[in-house]
Design a protein around this nucleic acid. Structure first.
Length: 109
RNA sequence: CGAGUAACCGAGACAACAGCGGGCGCAGUGCCGAAAGGCCGCGCGUGAGGAAAGUCCGAGCUCCACAGGGCAGAAUAGCUGCUAACGGCAGCCGGAGGCGACUCUAGGGACAGUGCAACAGAGAGAUACCGCCGUUCUUUGAACGGUAAGGCUGGAAAGGCGAGGUAAGAGCUCACCAGCGUCUGGGGAACCAGACGGCUAUGUAAACCCUAUUCGGAGCAACACCCAAACGAAAACAGAUGCGGCGGCCCGUCGCGUUUUCACCGAGGUGGCUAAAGCCAUGUGGCGACAUAUGGCGUAGAUAGAUUGUUGUCAAAUACAGAACUCGGCUUAUUGUUUGCUCGUGCC
């Protein structure tokens, strides 16, 4: 990815959950918060509610691919956390991408 | 054709575009960092399973004393073999189920000891309630004695069943069957077959227990190394009959003050990390598990965690499901195809 790194510290996730803006959709929950790094950081949460390792991997892949396709049009300087939901594993990538695009347009404007 | 039973094999392939993790090669010495070290571009090649799962066994590897003695504790339980090892596997023996193919089997010991067996029933290591028979008194019965065939209860009632026998009965006697013991024969063994003997006193050891065999503990967040930082203060207790290290206890052994509070110091990096009791093919030995020889292959190593998204073609690609130090098993989840065998039905 061009200007994005992964978010891997638990304290960063907690900060977004408490202080970030969020939107909910049936296949995706998005949290966003501005950072001062000059690039984006994303984190993906797949809880055990979704299923076992295989289903969680699938959800993570779908979200990462959706983000990758949307990335060129996004503004820079945000921390993002995407939370997969149970229905995420059942749907196609296009549905996730549409939900994400809708969320990001609202949150990052 | 239907029902069943056993086993092999597969787990999408190909093409296009986009994208991700390792590896190798080339290049700038460009970027980040205090440093160890890491990042970026292009090309080539490579990249999840039959169960990767559950974490139920067994090993390797690492550290604790290269692991010591005893007790406690745990596991296993027909025989012979295979294996690095196993609670696994193979073959066989015994038992159970099925018409059969075939399947299942936690399969040592109840004359070492302790316990339990409710209720019912006359009586459950012990009986005489009814009944049957005899004797006596007497006469529609009673007392005493004999009996375990018949009745009732129960999961189980003093081996089963038939004949003889008897006052009535009884392994009292006999044949057959079951069980026990001894002997003989066969087998490597579990065990099998036969003969003879006396005539026997329940079940439960997935109840405690006994016997035999095996087992030290913790786990890759193990552990090793590198860079940076720190390596101080106070209080309490003890003075070796103390504290700590080896899962519990006792020894043994090694090390040494210990604990608490405050202060100081990294959400650092690299290795371990994949060549392995490895896989494939062929030959040889073995009923088989497996062993062995030759040749070939070199096949993921992440650390918020990598093969996926969108199409097209194929009759369909759907199910269960994602490596996390590595192997050998077991168990559980689940999809498709094929083949052998068994039983039933119909036709030739």
């Amino acid at each position: 990815m061009i200007h994005t790194t992964t978010l891997n510290e638990n304290r960063d996730f907690k900060k977004l959950y408490h202080r970030g803006k969020s939107l909910v959709h049936s296949v995706l929950v998005t949290y966003a918060f501005k950072n001062k790094l000059g690039h984006n950081r994303i984190g993906i949460t797949t809880t055990r509610k979704i299923g076992k390792a295989c289903k969680r991997n699938r959800a993570r892949r779908l979200i990462r691919e959706a983000y990758r396709q949307l990335e060129p049009q996004l503004p820079v300087g945000w921390d993002l956390v995407f939370v997969a939901r149970t229905r995420t594993t059942l749907c196609k990538m296009d549905a996730v991408k549409a939900a994400m695009e809708q969320h990001l347009n609202k949150l990052l404007s």
